Amino acid sequence: METICLDCGNAIKGRSDKKFCNDACRNHYNNRLKSEDNFLLKSINQILKQNRSILLKLNPEGKVKMAKSRLLKAGFNFSYHTHHHQTHNGNTYVFCYEQGYLPLNDNELLLVRKEEK
């Protein structure tokens, strides 16, 4: 039974368990698989970095109330964040790295910065 290369489709000579005809095909195949995953990660990381940058720019002092519309106008994407923090009194802060916000009502947010301990 003839084995064919997973990348180029040519016949493979040598061991019966080989998947690629040479190192170039193996590298090309694996790089192509990784590039699809990397594209998704890069685009999500770019959104997270932009969100953090917007929060940092609008909250230089570490705590400020602000209209949600200001973040939206600056390009903030509320669908992406790194984590949540629930306080003892039931408030849920949404964070993008160390920068975060607490929704106060439909139109207002409290921007905060998580202090390192």
Rank of each mutant, 00 (worst) to 15 (best):
H28N: 14
R32Q: 05
L55Y: 00
G14Y: 01
H81K: 11
N27M: 05
I4Q: 13
S53E: 14
L109T: 02
I47A: 08
T82D: 08
T82K: 14
N91H: 09
T82G: 10
G9M: 01
P103F: 07
Y80E: 14
T92P: 11
Q99C: 13
C25L: 02
K57I: 09
S69H: 15
I12S: 02
Q46T: 09
T92R: 07
M66W: 00
E36G: 06
P103G: 05
H84P: 07
N45Y: 06
L58M: 08
D7G: 01
L72N: 13
N38C: 06
R32K: 07
D7C: 03
S53C: 10
Q50N: 12
S43E: 15
Q46W: 13
N77L: 05
Q50H: 09
F76M: 01
I47K: 04
Q50V: 01
K57F: 04
L48N: 01
D106M: 07
Q50E: 06
A24K: 12
F78H: 06
E108M: 08
E36L: 08
Q99I: 00
I47V: 15
K34W: 10
A74R: 03
G90Y: 06
K114H: 14
D7R: 07
K42V: 14
C25V: 02
P60T: 11
K57P: 05
L111G: 00
F20C: 07
K68W: 05
L48D: 11
Y93L: 01
Q86R: 08
A11H: 13
N10Y: 09
Y97M: 01
L41Y: 11
R26K: 14
R15T: 02
Y93G: 01
T92H: 09
N38T: 15
N77Y: 11
I44N: 14
N10C: 09
L111D: 00
D37Y: 15
Q86F: 05
K19H: 05
M1N: 08
L58E: 06
N10F: 13
N45L: 07
L48W: 02
I4N: 11
T82L: 14
N77K: 15
S16D: 15
E36W: 11
L33Y: 10
N59L: 02
R70H: 11
K42S: 15
L104D: 08
D17N: 13
R70E: 12
Y101P: 00
N22I: 01
Y93K: 03
N107A: 02
K13E: 13
L58P: 04
N91D: 15
N30Y: 05
L55H: 03
S69Y: 15
E116C: 08
N31V: 03
L109E: 02
M66Y: 13
E108H: 13
L111M: 06
Q99D: 14
H88C: 13
